[in-house]
Write a protein that binds this DNA or RNA. Structure first.
Length: 594
RNA sequence: UGGCGAAUGGUGUAAUGGUAGCACAGCUGCCUCUGGAGCAGUUAGUCAUGGUUCGAAUCCAUGUUCGCCAGCCA
């Protein structure tokens, strides 16, 4: 992907080199590590203490390669990889659960690998595919048949559903349940040979049709699919089901703790049944935790796909998408996502997390790391009437007040500058500390100026420019600079600034739970019509002519922005707003209006 | 009305029979050449009802509410 190449070309002068960042901030203890252990870490610690699994900790992240990873997956990735990193001998496998050729593809395995790596995790040489176990899985199925614990069933899908019963009533046994071992063996082999059509037969575990747990009512473990698989091609026309595959893959790999989400809790008895019937001595322990729910977001592949297909967003990596690639393009750092996952914790409670916590994580991270820069989003022309026409000064500006080692830079200043439209009010409300007729304001790193005139279009009465005088005694950094004014605003020299497109993103949905709609209504009705505002007349300081795709900056007084990796060209700078700075004035003004 | 799981401030999460704490959000101040950051302070909580106990968020009982399960998906 072109945008990823662009990212790796980023200059090290800003927050771009993930490897370096990892190193630099790896020292920070995560809250979960320094404070207390979640219930899963407690179980693992206790198992290690008791010497279970020989004291080993082996976890795994087992995605199905059928879609892009999203923030919900990040929780699982951080848990599985993070947990394994806490033990000297710990290791976490990356295993693709690729047992359904109809939905999976290589494209997804590559994007998943990239996202996990980008998040900062390392599976070393433990990259696995369930499809690599197809031969073994087949043999295990045969073993089950030989034990009389599995049978080939000729019932149709509809019939199986009828026979299954309901949660409240027991199911009925299939008429094919008592076929002989020999017949089952023969039939299963012929299934593999391709003698039957899709759906004609299925291999089922023989457990208990009366179990209150529906997953134990003779679940299907192998189905016929005459489909070519992205890794095994046409070698197979039967494919194992999740419940059969997952536990065995875990056991084959020597997983000690198999962490999954709550909806698999009811599958656990089946997980254990398979491993016990197949007589595994060291059985992995499945532990369930609650998946992440983020407010104002949808995460299901179907819904996300609808947004992509319908053109509501600019692809899977649209900066408003909750996908990892979307967050990356938005400007989120891997560290901020990991910190977020630390902070939300791990429990069995089905909680919904406030996106403000995610935003706090990225602000917190970028505040310490992002270079400061001045950019005017909505320019208003200001003429400094007593400043010489041909003069340019280079003013020293601090790159990051949180990090003295980031140094300083020079910013050109001249007679005509741009300031933010919102930083001037002809008729200012109370507590407005910025520029107003007759009023004074400090230009960041420059002079105190005073507004002496306002120029308007005679026809439209529209504000065209304001005239100000400079107080030459107040230049920043000089002895006379001590005079104080209430406000300081940012600016860009008109002659030196460079044009940029700036995209202001807001939440994609207007409601906490976008899927909560009336019967017959569509979740898209909850879309935020103002989730994207594109500004085409923004002007940024010349420092940014060295900005590279993926670079992150703080535009002072505005927010954190990153150079878009997709649409930025050689002479076309595009910035995505990752997150705005907290805006106290906006709050005050809101209250005043109420 | 079957099974499984879960309920602690607005949100997320601690306290493992002994002072209900932390973070986010909110609110007050202080500070500030970013109305950012920082600092200080503050509002607000144990689902309900019983019981056990010197003592219960924690144990027991009953109830309530919420989530998940009837794919040849994972």
């Amino acid at each position: 992907m072109a945008n990823h190449e662009a990212e790796s070309n980023s200059k090290p002068s800003t927050v771009t080199s993930e490897a370096r960042n990892r190193e630099k901030w790896a020292e920070e203890p995560s809250e979960s590590q320094s404070q207390h252990k979640d219930f899963i870490r407690e179980i693992v610690a206790e198992d290690v203490r008791q010497g279970k699994h020989g004291g080993q900790v082996v976890t795994r992240f087992p995605p199905e390669p059928n879609g892009y990873l999203h923030i919900g997956h990040a929780k699982s990735i951080c848990l599985n990889f993070g947990l394994s990193e806490e033990y000297a001998q710990g290791v976490c496998h990356l295993r693709f659960d690729d047992t359904n050729p109809l939905r999976e593809s290589l494209e997804y395995v590559e994007s998943i690998k990239e996202d996990v790596r980008w998040l900062g995790f390392d599976w070393q040489d433990h990259l696995y595919f369930a499809s690599d176990y197809f031969d073994q899985l087949y043999q295990y199925a045969v073993a089950l048949i030989k034990k009389g614990k599995a049978f080939v069933c000729d019932l149709t899908m509809e019939q199986i559903r009828e026979y299954r019963g309901t949660p409240a009533e027991p199911g009925r046994e299939s008429p094919y349940r008592n076929r002989s071992v020999e017949e089952n063996l023969d039939l299963f082999e012929r299934m593999r040979q391709g003698e039957f059509a899709d759906g004609e037969k299925v291999l089922r575990a023989k457990i208990d049709m009366a179990s209150p747990n529906i997953h134990l009512r003779d679940p299907a473990i192998y189905r016929i699919r005459h489909a070519s698989h992205h890794r095994t091609g046409d070698r197979w026309c039967i494919y194992p089901m999740y419940d059969f595959t997952h536990c065995l893959s875990d056991a084959i790999e020597g997983i000690t703790h198999s962490l999954c989400t709550m909806e698999f809790e009811v599958h656990r008895p089946l997980y254990e049944w398979v491993l016990s019937e197949l007589e595994f001595e060291q059985q992995p322990r499945q532990i369930e935790f609650a998946r992440l729910n983020l407010g104002f977001v949808v995460v299901s592949k179907r819904l996300l796909n609808e947004l992509v297909e319908g053109g509501y967003v600019d692809g899977w990596n649209d900066p408003r998408m909750p996908t990892i690639c979307g967050l990356r393009r938005r400007g989120y750092t891997p560290e901020s996502i990991r910190r977020f996952c630390d902070k939300i914790g791990v429990t069995k409670y089905n909680a919904t997390t406030d996106p403000a916590l995610l935003e706090h994580s990225i602000r917190d991270d970028l505040n310490r790391r992002a270079q400061r820069v001045m950019g005017v989003l909505r320019p208003l022309r200001v003429v400094l009437v007593n400043y010489p026409e041909d003069k340019t000064e280079q003013l020293e500006a601090v790159n990051n007040p949180e990090d003295p080692s980031a140094g300083t830079r020079l910013v050109p200043f001249s007679r005509v500058i741009y300031i933010e439209q919102g930083d001037f009010r002809e008729d200012p409300p109370k507590k407005f500390f910025r520029l107003m007729p007759g009023g004074e304001v400090r230009l960041r790193y420059a002079y105190i100026i005073k507004c002496v005139d306002v120029v308007k279009d005679p026809d439209t009465d529209e504000l065209i420019e304001v005239h100000c005088t400079v107080d030459f005694d107040t230049r920043s950094g000089t002895g006379q600079a001590q005079r104080k004014v209430k406000g300081t605003i940012h600016w860009v020299s008109a002659d030196h600034g460079i044009p940029a497109q700036v995209r202001l993103y807001d939440r994609l949905f207007q409601v906490q739970d976008p899927t909560d709609v009336e019967e017959g209504e569509d979740f898209k009705k909850n879309l935020n019509p103002n989730s994207l505002e594109t500004l085409t007349t923004s002007i940024v300081e010349p420092t940014l002519n060295q900005a590279r795709p993926g670079d992150r900056y703080q535009f002072e007084r505005q927010g954190y922005f990153c150079v878009d990796t997709k649409d930025t060209g050689p002479d076309h700078l595009v910035f995505n707003r990752t997150v705005p700075l907290k805006d106290t004035w906006a709050k005050i003004e809101q209250k005043q209006q109420r």
